[in-house]
Structures are given as structure tokens and as C-alpha cells.
Amino acid sequence: MFVTELRFECFADTTITAAEKAINHYLESLRANGQILGREFAVAFNEGEFKVRLLMPEKTSLATRHNSPWTKQALQQLTDAKLLAPREKYIGQDINSEVSNTEQPSWQVLYTSYVHMCSPIRSGDNLLPIPLYQLPATFNGDHKRVIRWQTEWQACDELQMAAATKAEFAALEEITSHQSDLFRRGWDIRGGVEYLTKIPTYYYLYRVGGENLASEKNRACPRCGSKAWRLDEPLLDMFHFRCEPCRIVSNISWDHQ
């Protein structure tokens, strides 16, 4: 991933309130399309201009060819707020994050965790994130539905990792059960991505708990009951199960690895 700085200059008299609203609207449109990553963006005002540093999946993430209809409309709102189109200054590569996938994958997986800010659509060949704007729009011209699901999954993951409150059990149910609301929405997103890209796309079903290693190895697909989903060798050293009809991948319980 890469770090860049955007600078917004005024071309006529305006107000901090108008500029703030237009800039934040623009940044949110980029986030909804996967062009920038993260949830909070510190916008600084100094010497007549606004500056913000952003994390991007690729060097070219802010290229106009990637812009969604919302972003195009947000650019016009910048003009209405008496701001010039943003000027970009490349800072460098982020040393603490993953690189993005660059090759056409043979399969894909919807996978995230509370420590990841990158795209939750990953190549099944190498588990590298696929920038969302490289995919056809999944909802109303961009990918806000995917990002909303990711935010909810990460919130549940953080709760269960903390293991400090009763909320842990409800959160764990959401990310481990094929009957949860989070699974249902994610599995639908997975299906939409597969339909649009024509690439087999799977849902990662998190697994923890279980009685012992033997029972874990013999557990069935929770959705269809098939035991034929266990793999001889784990995919990417992580996925020990893959159900083709249900489009689900999963792991042997982290408690027994």
C-alpha cells in the first residue's frame, strides 16, 4: 500500500464549514469505492490550504478512471465550495501493510480480520487483497456495501479477540455461524462479486472451539452437511476445508492447530 498527500486550495472566498463538508464528502466517496483505506482522516488547515494524508491500495488508486459516480459528484461539490481539484503528492510505500494483488485470480475469497484495513476481496492464489475499484460496482455505483460488511465483521472479531465481556459470545456467533445475519449478508455479497467477475468467489467462515482435533478434521460443511469438503492439504496454509457447492472455505479450529 502507498501513502499520498492531497492538498485542497481555495480559489475564492469560502468558509471552513463549507470546505470541511465538501472535503469530507469527497474522502468518504473515495473510501466507499476502495480507493483510500481506513476510517478516519485528519484534515489540516494551514496557510490557506487543506491537507490530508491517505493510505491507498496502489499508486494509481486516485486516477480518475477509477472514480465512482459519487466521487464525480463530490468533485463538483469541491468546486461549489470554492476549492480547486485536489493536488496529489506521493509520499512513499507503507512498510507496515500488504501489497495489492496484480494478477487475475483463479478464485477469490471474502476474508478479513480486525487488524486489516485492505480490501476484503482477496485472490485465492496468494491471499493478496484485490482493490475494490478494480471490480465492477457491487452496490449503487461503488462498494459501500462491501465496506460496511467488513466494518461489522471486524468489530465482531475485535470483541471476540478481547474476550473481556459477554458481548464476546454474540460477536463470535456472528462470525462463526452460517445462520447469522453477518454470514447471510456476506454470502450474498460473495455471490454478487462472483456473478459480476465470473470468478469463483468463496466466503471464509471463521472457526474456533470444537471438542478436539479428530472431531474438527471430520466435521461437515455447516451449510449442506457434506464431509467431502475437507482438503488433503490446506490452501494457503490456512483453509483446511472448501465446499464447492456452498462456496465456503474454513479452517480447523484455531484452538486445535
Rank of each mutant, 00 (worst) to 15 (best):
I91R: 11
L27W: 12
H143W: 15
N24I: 07
F8N: 07
T112V: 08
A85H: 14
A220K: 15
S253A: 04
P129N: 06
W149T: 00
A162M: 14
W187H: 02
R223E: 05
M1P: 11
R65W: 13
T17Q: 09
T14V: 07
L172W: 12
P86H: 09
A74R: 00
L235H: 07
E28V: 11
Y203H: 07
Y90R: 13
A170Y: 11
A85L: 06
G141N: 01
G225M: 06
K166S: 12
L6S: 06
G141D: 03
T138P: 04
M1V: 12
T201Q: 03
Y26S: 01
S119A: 02
S97G: 01
I121Q: 00
L30P: 00
H25C: 13
D13Q: 14
N140M: 13
K59H: 11
N67K: 09
K21V: 09
A228H: 15
E158L: 10
I248R: 04
T79Y: 15
F8S: 03
R148Q: 13
E47F: 12
K144L: 11
P120C: 01
Q257D: 04
F8W: 05
H116C: 02
E20W: 15
F239V: 12
A137F: 15
R185E: 01
S68A: 02
L6I: 07
V43D: 01
Q257H: 14
F169W: 14
K89W: 15
A170D: 09
Q134A: 03
S253E: 07
P222Y: 05
I16M: 13
A32D: 11
A137C: 13
E244H: 08
A167G: 10
K89C: 11
E47Q: 10
S113I: 10
E152N: 07
Y114Q: 12
A220P: 06
R87N: 15
P131C: 02
S61D: 04
S250K: 10
T4Q: 10
E152R: 15
L37A: 04
M56D: 02
S61F: 04
Y202A: 00
Y26G: 00
L84D: 08
Y206W: 11
D255M: 05
R219I: 02
N67V: 06
Q160L: 14
A228T: 14
F239Y: 08
A85Q: 09
W149S: 00
A63I: 13
Y133A: 01
G34I: 10
A81N: 00
G192D: 07
L231F: 13
M56I: 03
A171C: 14
L213R: 13
F2A: 05
L132C: 02
G191H: 07
G186F: 09
H256F: 02
A32N: 13
L55V: 08
E152W: 15
A214L: 12
I16H: 14
R247L: 11
I199G: 06
L235V: 15
L30W: 00
F139N: 09
D188E: 04
L55H: 04
N212K: 05
D181G: 06
H116R: 11
A18C: 09
E173W: 11
R87L: 15
G192Y: 15
V249I: 03
K198H: 10
F239T: 06
I95W: 12
Y203D: 02
L83D: 00
R219Y: 06
